[in-house]
């Protein structure tokens, strides 16, 4: 790999720009492509079939080999990190935030209560002290974003869930017992969401592994988010 191309890869990653690195396996010619076209590298590679394959791969977030006029080409998707918005700077969040970081998520913890959302409770985590719906709207969840509400307080959780349901977030979960969740479902119905919308919310949050401690509950939630992310994808 040429040094200029590596610099372009790093620049795209820092700018959180979705790109794909394409490599001709015979000889090693390379180019960095965005869905709009060539970013850097070998211009000869920015032809129709390679450009289309790169754009598809970025959309599908899937690396793979394709046959082209240049021979076999490997397309490596370099999408920006997955994101996770955690509503509630509570005890579970203190475990969930660093564990999600290990899984590659860029984590934002949202809580308008200053006593909870203090920097010393969340070292090295981005904490936003705002109303959850405002903060979440600002964050603009997309299909590479997970939204998890953990406050147990309908005043904080419900508005955040409403914003999450209006987005394409791939995973939405809300902490609370089955009974708490039933109440939540009723309130969201009254707010105008239909059954299909509400079915997107995983509640109680997490896979049923009989989790008890905050870290165990975080494990259950991250396992469920991973299942949702990779579901139907055998690789």
């Amino acid at each position: 790999m040429r040094r200029e191309l590596l610099a372009a890869v790093i620049e795209a990653q820092r700018a959180k720009r979705p790109v794909a690195l394409v490599t001709v396996l015979e000889g090693g010619a390379q180019a960095l492509m965005a869905s709009e076209g060539l970013v850097a590298g070998d211009e000869d590679l920015a032809v129709d079939d390679v450009a289309a394959a790169a754009a598809d791969a970025i959309g599908d977030d899937r690396c793979g080999c394709i046959e082209t006029a240049h021979g076999q080409v490997f397309v490596q998707v370099l999408n920006p990190p997955l994101r996770m918005a955690i509503v509630g700077a509570v005890h579970i969040s203190q475990a969930l935030a660093p564990m999600a970081g290990l899984l590659g998520y860029e984590v934002t913890v949202i809580d308008p209560r200053r006593a909870f959302a203090s920097a010393d409770r969340f070292p090295d985590v981005r904490v936003v002290v705002e109303w959850p719906d405002d903060a979440l709207r600002e964050l603009a969840p997309d299909r590479r974003t997970a939204v998890i509400t953990l406050t147990h307080d309908p005043k904080l959780d419900d508005p955040a869930l409403a914003v999450a349901l209006e987005s394409t977030a791939f995973y939405i979960a809300s902490l609370g017992s089955t009974r708490t969740h039933a109440g939540r479902v009723e309130r969201l119905k009254q707010a105008g969401f239909d059954n299909a919308d509400i079915a997107r919310i995983h509640g109680p949050a997490g896979l049923p592994i009989s989790a008890r401690s905050p870290a165990e509950i975080a494990t259950a939630i991250l396992a469920q988010a991973t299942q949702q992310l990779r579901g139907g994808n055998s690789s």
């Binding site: 040094r3 790093i10 990653q13 490599t23 793979g64 490997f74 490596q76």
Partner: peptide, 21 residues
């Protein structure tokens, strides 16, 4: 990639190995 650039800047010889299939 960041580490690759860092190692190269230190004057080390560097190879990148990628699972392609």
């Amino acid at each position: 990639f960041e580490t690759a650039a860092c190692w190269r800047d230190q004057g080390r010889g560097v190879a990148l190995c990628t699972v392609v299939a």
